[in-house]
Design a protein around this nucleic acid. Structure first.
Lengths: 231, 231
DNA sequence: TAGATTGTTAATCGATTAACAATC
DNA sequence: TAGATTGTTAATCGATTAACAATC
């Protein structure tokens, strides 16, 4: 039953279940078992049942889950049963790509505006969405009760942007800037750092033996360097 | 000491340490303690020391870590001590944004080519990088010994693309397509799903009480629907 | 030497998996 | 009813934190 606060790892899996259900419904599948959801998602059937159990009992023993029923429940759980108004800050390549992608493919969000400081992009429209000067962000946030923002500005200005938008009511931020951002209690910042993803991927592209070899290489010379630096 | 295989959670933190060290070195800071790294990264000092200990003993007791020494070690550990050749598959908005961003800001990778199936983009150049027809991918992968690929194609064609590039030697994939991809043992697929990130963020923008209210709402009507569907 | 901070082992915490009773 | 699958508790596993000896 309902639970005290559910862990982040659980919350990150919910949208995965949602997507699978959307696909099943599109294919007119009406019932799905946790085992089938497991095959589609890669998460274990036990884990899926446990995740769902945090929010209620949505299945039928012996049968499985009704796809549309569970989908609707997940929409309510995640908060997608009504369109979420969001803003994007930073109209560079990534901000523009995110705006275009979500405007076209994401029926659950409504991008109210994109903000930038560069005069050359202000006034443009990206898929019908206005590019506005960043000074107008406070006003728009308040007028539309914006709670969610995507940040695609350079690392250097990200903290400043975050401070400003939080002041006016934003409580959830998806940060694409390669920087650790600080925010008061109750504001959620999720970092999506493509550079870090890419670098940790590169780790796996290097074979273990090669890594060890490299690490042992040069140890002597860098060690003497280190000594120099320390004193 | 060196360890058997290090967990994913550890590997994901290494690039964070690297970035902090890069910043410190730029500011001419020569020594850093695990406590200072903790403040910059948000990870605990104990965790940082433990993470590094998987690969060796890089610090000096009583003093801390030499920034350039540790940075160089991390470069070797991650595999960034020589430029990694990568390819991007999909020259849409996201693929283009990623290409531009990394070409300009990421000194550790070398984007050899971008592939697409759309004739209108083939032949173009994005920041000096060629956009080539996807059929040429196998040849390029083999010629340049490409191990790492970024995939920004639509969900429907992602699996097909993955199967093809794996055949020719790619072992690490950063997948931006909203789909679960299957790959044989030894091939690493990391999913960066912006829709899922955004949806789990939206979860946190909704207050707990509101969520419970929504979940209880309509329970009766949808319950009868469910019954109908089941029989 | 005294103070500081690493490297590492032991204790705790949380998340996943196994198991099974409930029940359709 | 028999077979199937959920919901949930108990057992296991892994990751984080605490503690401290080693040592600069």
């Amino acid at each position: 039953m309902t639970s005290r606060s559910v862990s982040k790892t659980v919350v990150k899996r919910l949208p995965v279940y949602l997507r699978i259900l959307d696909n099943l419904i599109r294919r007119d599948v009406e019932i799905v078992s946790s085992r089938e959801l497991s095959l589609e998602s890669g998460f274990s059937a036990e884990q899926i049942r446990k995740d769902l159990a945090y929010f209620g009992a949505f299945g039928t023993r012996g049968t499985g889950y009704n796809t549309t029923f569970l989908r609707d429940k997940l929409l309510k759980i995640i908060g997608l049963d009504q369109k979420t108004k969001i803003i994007i800050i930073g109209a560079g390549h990534l901000g523009t790509a995110l705006a275009r992608y979500n405007a076209v493919n994401n029926p659950y969000v409504d991008i109210v505006a994109i903000f930038d400081r560069d005069r050359r992009v202000i006034g443009q429209k990206i898929e019908q969405i206005r590019v506005l000067p960043f000074q107008q962000a406070p006003e728009i946030i308040r007028r539309y009760h914006i709670k969610v923002a995507l940040i695609t500005v350079p690392a250097g200005s990200a903290q400043q942007v975050v401070d400003e938008i939080i002041k006016h009511g934003v409580t959830a931020i998806l940060n694409f800037a390669p920087a650790k951002l600080h925010a008061p209690e109750g504001v959620h910042i999720h970092n999506s750092d493509l550079t870090i993803d890419l670098q940790s991927l590169i780790y796996y592209s290097t074979a273990e033996e090669e890594r060890l070899l490299r690490l042992q290489q040069e140890t002597e010379e860098t060690k003497s360097q280190k000594m120099l630096k320390l004193e």
